[in-house]
Write a protein that binds this DNA or RNA. Sequence first.
DNA 1: ACGAAATCGGATGTCAAGGTCCAATTTAGC
DNA 2: GCTAAATTGGACCTTGACATCCGATTTCGT
Lengths: 150, 150
Amino acid sequence: MFSKTVEYALRAVAYLGYAAPDARTTEQIAAATRVAPAYLSKVLQGLCRAGVVKSQRGVRGGMSLARRPEQLTILEVVNAVEPIRRITTCPLGLKSHGVHLCPLHKRIDDALAMVEAAFRQTTLAEVLAEPTRSPPLCDVSIDRLKVAAN
Amino acid sequence: MFSKTVEYALRAVAYLGYAAPDARTTEQIAAATRVAPAYLSKVLQGLCRAGVVKSQRGVRGGMSLARRPEQLTILEVVNAVEPIRRITTCPLGLKSHGVHLCPLHKRIDDALAMVEAAFRQTTLAEVLAEPTRSPPLCDVSIDRLKVAAN
DNA sequence: ACGAAATCGGATGTCAAGGTCCAATTTAGC
DNA sequence: GCTAAATTGGACCTTGACATCCGATTTCGT
């Protein structure tokens, strides 16, 4: 239902939020999020163009959040890589009823709207702060220790 | 977010519900739902195997609903062609926390759960019966007249 | 100024989704 | 029994998602 690319983008952003405000290299992010480094690179480029993360080239460069976690919603991340396309007109292309969706497509769009609303209401900060037995992104804490040790 | 195949399956089922209890040929369904006939054939085969529709070969054959619209939910149709895969374990494969999802994946799974619940609660009969300016499936009424005229 | 470290961008490869085509099979009706 | 009408299943094609690779470029630190 959600593409792998969306998964990868959310993992990366979660990891960066955890590391904020420091930057992390694509290699580090890939290792921590268990994503193929070369592909993650492309995903991060997309997030960069969308203004979700910012990049710094060269020595001691890497990726970091473009905004504070409190100002970044899950929806923005999702829409940056693969926009949720709401149904606004009849997919069958019938002009017989203009903007009014038939009951079937209304239901489908309602489902999209629910997801959209849920993601819009959730900030990265909320995800990171949520008390839980499992740390965000699973083993990000282990990685954090590893990075801190360097 | 939802695949084309899911769209096609829902359109076909909506059309068949509208025509119920009579059968319709793949050609008729394809024309009414604006789907490529050859591909719709494959989709219908899947629905048939899943027990959502039933097929009748030969002269005066075609496709019809396997159950009454009141007994068929949107979720069943969706799951027949492309099951909604809830997140049950950490996608990163970390065994460090067993069945407990991290906050990120919890949110994603919550979204999936909402969609699943909405689709489970909606029967085909409800979709067909809903009062609206636009008939279900857009121009199904036009098609109905055409079929009735034969 | 130089070199190492990092992103950027383009070319390429792989695989599943979406889509087509057709011969084989089944079946109602004459 | 024959024929026309319909599904079935398999082979095939096309496109986009996922993924890899590498040379070019930028930039920090010495």
